[in-house]
Amino acid sequence: MSDNSAGTGRDIQADLAFVKALVTEGSRAQISGGALYLAGGVCYGLQCLAQWAHLVGIVNLGLWGNLIAGFLPSIVFLAVMGVILWRDRKVPKNGVATRALNAAFSSAGLANLFMVGVFAYVAITEKSMLIWLLYPITVCAFQGAVWYTAYMIRKQIWLAVISAGWFVTTLTLGFLLGTPHYVLVLGLALSVIMGGGGWYMMTQARK
């Protein structure tokens, strides 16, 4: 009887250790993903807001200001991404939910990578800035889809709210295409939806 009790105790400890590992892994992945989204939202959101302020005449960025606004956000974001990837290089990602979410976000990232090439090529060959402005709308639609996928996996309402925000942004940008306010709405969406979503993701993971 004592042997059975000891065996049951070991089984319970093993189960608890397994559950703890899954929770810890999920939390670490959420913190890292949230940090990336927060960094991306802040960097590119501020970039769009600066460009909008320049377009409507609030500020005059000039040549150097435009160059800094064009390249600095990507430099900062890539630096943050490099630090996070290096920090998490040995963290296992074996949980089913974690792998599913990674697959969803990675797939959206790959789709965006190929679409940027398509839109850039067509915009250059057709000499149409309007075509290029369709690319951010596509990105917003992809973001809405991938956050909805996250909601279907996690069943957390805030994920559905983020998804809805991206879809509303997609429609709004379509109506504002070709106007200076297009850049304003995109900047606000990146700052609030992407950056805010990343911050909330980190907050939830730490709880």
Rank of each mutant, 00 (worst) to 15 (best):
L38S: 04
A145K: 03
I75F: 11
V83F: 05
I193G: 02
A141N: 08
G57K: 13
F105R: 01
S163L: 12
L130Q: 10
A103N: 03
A145M: 15
V83M: 08
P180C: 03
Q156H: 06
A103R: 05
A35F: 00
L22E: 05
G196K: 05
V118E: 06
A39K: 03
A145V: 14
I153V: 13
I84M: 01
Y148R: 15
I162F: 10
F18Q: 02
A50M: 07
R99V: 09
W158L: 08
I131L: 14
G7Y: 07
P136T: 11
I137H: 04
Y37Q: 04
M201V: 09
K207H: 09
H54S: 12
Y44S: 10
V161P: 08
F114W: 09
A6H: 02
A100P: 01
L78N: 10
Q204E: 11
A123P: 12
F114T: 10
W147N: 13
L101S: 01
L130W: 03
A29I: 01
V83P: 02
S74H: 06
Y148A: 15
A69H: 01
T8M: 15
A17F: 00
K20R: 09
I131H: 02
F77E: 04
G195W: 02
M152I: 14
Q47G: 01
G195K: 12
A53Q: 15
K127C: 14
G7A: 03
A164W: 11
P92W: 06
M1H: 06
A14G: 00
H181D: 10
Y121D: 07
K155E: 06
L16A: 08
K127D: 15
M194A: 13
A35V: 00
T8W: 09
Y44I: 10
N112W: 08
D11V: 08
S32Y: 11
V23C: 03
A50I: 05
L177V: 13
